[in-house]
Write a protein that binds this DNA or RNA. Sequence first.
DNA 1: CATGAATGAGGATTCATTCAT
DNA 2: CATGAATGAATCCTCATTCAT
Lengths: 202, 202, 202, 202
Amino acid sequence: MKDLNKRSKIIAAATKVFAKKGFFTARISDIAKEAKVADGTIYLYFNNKYDILISVFEEEIGKIIDQIKKILATETDPKKMLEMYVTRHLQTMKKNRNLAEVIQIELRQTNKLIKEYRNTKFIEYTDMMADIVRLGQSQGLFRTDIEPDIAKRFFFGALDEVSRIWNTSAEGRYSVEEIAGQLLQIILTGISAPNGRLAGQP
Amino acid sequence: MKDLNKRSKIIAAATKVFAKKGFFTARISDIAKEAKVADGTIYLYFNNKYDILISVFEEEIGKIIDQIKKILATETDPKKMLEMYVTRHLQTMKKNRNLAEVIQIELRQTNKLIKEYRNTKFIEYTDMMADIVRLGQSQGLFRTDIEPDIAKRFFFGALDEVSRIWNTSAEGRYSVEEIAGQLLQIILTGISAPNGRLAGQP
Amino acid sequence: MKDLNKRSKIIAAATKVFAKKGFFTARISDIAKEAKVADGTIYLYFNNKYDILISVFEEEIGKIIDQIKKILATETDPKKMLEMYVTRHLQTMKKNRNLAEVIQIELRQTNKLIKEYRNTKFIEYTDMMADIVRLGQSQGLFRTDIEPDIAKRFFFGALDEVSRIWNTSAEGRYSVEEIAGQLLQIILTGISAPNGRLAGQP
Amino acid sequence: MKDLNKRSKIIAAATKVFAKKGFFTARISDIAKEAKVADGTIYLYFNNKYDILISVFEEEIGKIIDQIKKILATETDPKKMLEMYVTRHLQTMKKNRNLAEVIQIELRQTNKLIKEYRNTKFIEYTDMMADIVRLGQSQGLFRTDIEPDIAKRFFFGALDEVSRIWNTSAEGRYSVEEIAGQLLQIILTGISAPNGRLAGQP
DNA sequence: CATGAATGAGGATTCATTCAT
DNA sequence: CATGAATGAATCCTCATTCAT
């Protein structure tokens, strides 16, 4: 029960399989085959199928949280911070398309399965955005008539849905930079204090 | 007439059950019980379980499309149109919380199940938003550096995620008006042409 | 869920299969095949595998209890009653060899599986014997230095083990009458009050 | 030497675990944990799970046989011999409650698993009782109308079932002496030649 | 000899779907 | 049209056994 490498292999395989088939239609044997281990081996590392899903989710979200935290630590301008957050999120999702899918599944399905599961990692992740908004508001850069807890959902929803572009064949032509740029245009302009300067505009 | 009535009862029951338990954990017998018909009766009106999901989705989205089309027909100002769209969407979802859930499930899961299913109703629905954006751009009211096909996803994602507020106990304190108002602030400000006037501002 | 006939068929099949293979090595599909129903049908009548075992047990023991109660009602002499009990038990087990096996399995295994299951039927069955012993004691026919609750176990154990004769090929040559006769010799002589007359002896 | 020690540890652990959980619900890992060895180690000393059960059984029954043989060698009176047998059996079962359980399991289950297994040890054990009966009959002390091969089953069944008293919480109040005494009353009285003297009676 | 991670066959159970009534 | 008992394919998970270290 100590082979971390094997655990990672299973997580990676599960991410791929869940993304491709969805949580419910994915079979344990699919994951096992993808990870090149026996079915039973999976249960040496995870309690059950749901546990795999949650683990995939938490592990991956955890990584993003760590990355973004590190990046944000180097910056003090809320606008730049928002930019970094958005860009990083989209980059990660583009790089790991399956992850975007798994997040979607997780957020919309697991709560039906395991009522007691409180998705603290996800809350932590979106709360980072709410904090940036609050910071900007306190500095007079962002409108104060925007509720940070609504904004965070708004922004996350937008990011999440936009990420689906890379997974559905349609509209796959846009690059991360394009999309991030456009999203930021709208977000930053939309959230800036009325008399503040718009990002990228003199 | 009797048939249509029974079909509607099943659709309503399915919406409720899918919303509560999710598509996969919902059982046909749950829907049958909710609709007060026998399990077998359901198969007189639908081909299979997926067919019910798609029917629920298309029927409900169809209604919204019709409603919004009617409303939009009375208006020519793209900003007002966007406002109407957003408000109407949120109102509908607030009124019928289950619907919001089913939409979420449908969009993220069905495509895994039935590859051949092209969700034309949904595309039609979001394309209406893209059209409004295009209209605004042609009138010089909206920024032209925003790609309408990205904007529609961005806006829909934001609306969809925000709708989850009413289904998760957390943050249930916000009213439709508040949320719609804040969303519109960001959207309209964000999308307006730089020298255009902000909505609600002289 | 009302076809009592089908339920009986499954009970009969289960009795046979459990007797032949033992509870744990018996597969649900074996029972289904034996009963000529689909595997799933079994779950329309029973909650799970253990439930089948318990049902078989209680149903069959219940029948014996009813039979013996009826017989005992016609008799007042405790010695004759004991004779009837013993003979009836052995006859039933001889006729339905599988039942003897299932009782053995049930008594020695189920309590490991379902702690909360109180085998009231079985207790009722053996308590009938304790009651006969008490009756005989009160009439001065049976020794009073014998504890009825120990005697009932003693007698049941003897009957039960002796029943195995018909299921193991060895010693299959003895008839019910022979065995019942010998058992009764020992039991009645053993339990009679020292100065009472032995059964069948002047 | 070291090997034998480890083998004994496993036997002891298995006895405990089988008694507690039953053969089928017991896991090899349970036994390994109880014996404080690795799962794989068990397979250095036993061929498979059944082999453990049989070994436990034969080893323990073997010990009892040896003990009883030794005791019986000192005695010539069949009545006393029967008394010794019964008392010794109950004492052993009381001291090692788990053993009583394992015997019950073994006798009722293993024959379903391994058809080819002839339980010679057990036969040897009960045949000792048949031999005592025969001896008593030849000396005119025991009734000759009792078949020794039926009597041995009868007596063993009674002993075995009575032993369950210590394992089920109910009726745990009886001591070995009490139970052995009562059993012997019945057995000896029941088996004595009609004009012979009853045990413990002048 | 000892370990325990890995294996993979096996089986109880569920539930969408059918069809005789 | 409506019913709901019956079907049986499908799958998660367990655990005895193996074998590389």
